[in-house]
Amino acid sequence: MSAAPDHSPTFSRLSLTDRLSLAAPYLLVPVLVVIGFLAIGAPSSWLTLTVSGLAMGMMIFIMASGLTLVFGLMDVINFGHGAFISLGAFMGVSVLFWLSAWTDAPSLVLNVAAVLLAILAAMVFTGVIGWAFERVIVRPVYGSHLKQILVTVGGLIVLEQAIHVIWGAEEIYLNRPEALRGSITFGASALERYRILAVVVGLAIFVAMRLVLRRTKIGLIVRAGVQNGEMVEALGYRLKLVFIGVFIAGSALAGLGGVMWALYEQVITAGMGENMMILIFIVVIIGGLGSIEGAFIGALLVGLLQNYVAFLEPKVALISNIGLMTAILLWRPQGMMPVVKAK
């Protein structure tokens, strides 16, 4: 018998249709921005709405990114995710109140330090709660979606009630730190400072997650685990530990999103995370299960569309995101860039 030939790879040039199909998800955001510009007409209003939409999208992405990883890697539908958003917001706001001398000081350094400490506290707190949630509530129901929905909704209710017990049932209002109030004028547009910060933080989280998932061994293990967990174990990696790590990271990201959302809305309630869950699930589903890139694009689409439509036709804004989800699922039933196929 002769040895196998040394194949040389040959690649045919993709047709324009194929290339457009591959690039289509990435093109949706710029296309929507252009459509928004044409529909709104006034450049200053368009710029303000676009920055607002991007900021909202980035915050939704931060909250959704953890859920899509947990969904993709662990096949767990975690309705309790919303509670981590609320818990992160309450913990972060508590730290900001505690550091009110810093947040009220006319010092950018002290203001940013207070926000960073609030974020750190929120992420550690929700990470720890996430660890306990995985061990006590999620672990017994791996593999059963129906039980996961029932049990994690139960966990959500318990955690929300715990917030009522600890922080009270009333909504809590807050002011942003001094340096994050007000707007920057750009031409005839007023761009809120905090929204610009939210865009920067969201981008940083996206880049960091991509780097971790694409350039590190733990990222490789997570990506491989999404495809074939059994083989990852057979190669010597403790997938359960990876599961727990991803769950903790997802919970901590929800906590971060909670702080960012609290500073955006300037009011927090125990149910704020639960209220966000519909948008977050829309983002995870249209992005494609397990896909960070898909969740990022999906979140930006949701944020931009909501802002444009609310300006153009406020009544339609209520159904715009459901309409977006319907349109994308009709186009790509598995979502834009699924890592795992929906069962």
Binding site: Q227, V232, L235
Partner: peptide
Amino acid sequence: MGIFSDLTVEENMILATR
């Protein structure tokens, strides 16, 4: 075969070296 099809050949090999 248990190949991770979304990973490159190199990444599959990296995972195999503990």
